[in-house]
Design a protein around this nucleic acid. Structure first.
Lengths: 333, 333
DNA sequence: GTGAAAGCGCTAACAT
DNA sequence: ATGTTAGCGCTTTCAC
């Protein structure tokens, strides 16, 4: 059997309460006894049982993290931000992939709450009323990372996707009047926001929305390749393309290059996210900087505040974004 | 307060033992009572407390996963394989980054064992005697994923890195007598194996090892860029370069291209891993296929067997690898 | 400063 | 088929 607090108590000739005190750093212990206890712990190789502790204290020092796909370069970066801050505050993380599948998401929320996590970080596509209801039932705090909740009921950390898309489009519009948009899957609010930003920019620059300039993708490299083909097939080729993710933008650029079209000479391309991929292509990719690591880190930090019942003034955080010009767009003025 | 099994028992007019039985799917319950209990559970919104269950049953249905860096494309893919199989067998995962830092690794092993994980999957650089000792102390099974343990004491899942490197080198040697090798950090056994394979191939093809053809990298894109510069600076340029990771290989290729050197016309490049990056570059990257997802999946599957005390015949699994020819090498014969 | 004792919410014999 | 009763290993009052 494993060594328990009781064994340590006997070995050190004290009560288990005292052992508990020294293990938990309670100052109300005479240095001499503390020493005795530490020695006994060492001798026996005692390792506190966190499960028992969790049951007694109603705190597990672990938080649940629900993520669409950890093998995506975008989410992996977010997860790293979350984990680093979690470690800093002495939490561990239970990580599960949802594939943005609503049933899976709801199921994961439940098993994690069953495991008595002290809090939950959720990343996903859309937050439905069902999600919100589960969160309300939770009795532990929840924060959303890079995930929109229209109701703003659940604390969240994001950038302003609409403004970001606006700026990307605007950047392209300064060179060419025809700007295409390669979107992500069309059923998430983040994509809706990006599309709105794109359209708003067109409008402000007196351009109508041309449906044939709207290409539907799924964030993947291959869908970028396909998008490029669609754009090439157009009667009148646009002068710039705004692509909703970096990975897809790489596909778009290669799709053009494979057909002998040069970026940015023949057509400009701008991406979104600024993942590491953006510098791993020639020409290097101009893109919108979305601070993924920070979004993860801030959402975890926010969660710690919520878990400690600290006053968190702003629970719907908008982090800054910016545009970074590299070589897939022409130098502006 | 939260709803407990006791509340459900009262609501359904049965004992808590019966509730426990229906929750755990024990067949020894009359259908009628089962129904009553389910209704009570529904009415009260009861959700079993996994922590209490874990304490009583000494099983947590969670396994620990120690990974160098989840934001690395390579490890993220491995982690996805682990998590998918874990889900399949109803386990959850506690995930932590070690940055290959030995102190962190040892510390993580301890906190995870403290949390009473039912098993542990470890990924890292080198397995030292200290690691092995912790694993022995663990009282739960441990498996290594894409991680070598010279002693073969700990169950593991890998490919044959030496043979893989041999084949990559051999492939290049069929075109050119001078083949460079860009390695990863030189202090891990996987890199030692790769280097040995490279040297063995040179020897078999009657080539001496030329130290100036050995370039030290760190698996990163930037170190690939630097490696390319070093190779360009050589008196006599090699005809092929074997690079120890795909990401670094992209760097090498771009480093060459930035200086007007064409791949594969002027110099051939072959990578290692076959991450998604391999097709996200022009020319597409010839590389060694290391089945990362499968390594994760198999190591998790192996762990489930070990946790169930099933007979696992082979506990040091070697998965097959192969070479995939794309456009960064010339078509052979 | 230290100890005794009562839970935390469940599982797992053991009865019936 | 169902109920009773010990724990599981800890934290946390409450005494002393």
């Amino acid at each position: 059997m494993n060594v328990t607090i009781y064994d340590v108590a006997r070995e050190a000739n004290v009560s288990m309460a005292t052992v508990s005190r020294v293990v938990n750093g309670n100052p109300n212990v005479k240095p001499a006894t503390r020493k005795k206890v530490h020695e006994a712990i060492e001798r026996l190789g005692y390792r506190p049982n966190a499960v028992a502790r969790g049951l007694a204290s109603k705190k597990t020092t672990t938080v649940g993290v629900i993520i669409p796909d950890i093998s995506s370069i975008f989410f992996a970066e977010l997860a790293r931000g979350i984990e680093d801050i979690a470690t800093m505050y002495n939490y561990n993380i239970i990580l599960s992939n949802s594939d943005q599948n609503k049933d899976k998401e709801l199921h994961l929320i439940n098993t994690m709450l069953g495991k008595q996590v002290d809090g939950l970080i959720f990343m996903g596509g859309d937050i439905t009323e069902e999600h919100t209801e589960e969160f309300r039932r939770a009795s532990v705090p929840v924060t959303l990372a890079a995930t929109l909740d229209e109701s703003e009921e659940t604390p969240s950390v994001n950038i302003d996707y609409g403004d970001a898309a606006y700026e990307a489009t605007e950047h392209l519009l300064s060179t060419s009047k025809r700007v295409a948009y390669v979107s992500g899957p069309d059923n998430t609010s983040i994509n809706t926001k990006k599309l709105e930003g794109y359209k708003r920019a067109l409008k402000d620059y007196n351009q109508g929305v041309d449906d044939e300039l709207l290409v539907l993708g799924d964030y993947s490299y291959d869908s970028g390749l396909e998008a490029a083909e669609q754009i090439i097939a157009l009667e009148e080729r646009p002068g710039g393309v705004f692509v909703a993710s970096d990975e897809m933008a790489l596909g778009v650029i290669h799709g053009f290059q494979d057909k002998g079209i040069s970026v940015p000479e023949d057509i400009e391309v701008i991406g979104f996210d600024n993942t590491r991929l953006a510098t791993m292509i020639r020409p290097t990719l101009s893109t919108i900087v979305q601070p993924m690591y920070d979004i993860g880190a801030v959402s975890m930090r926010l969660l710690t505040k919520l878990m400690n019942k600290e006053q968190a003034e702003d629970t719907n955080v908008i982090l800054p974004h910016r545009i970074i010009e590299r070589n897939s767009t022409n130098q502006k003025k």
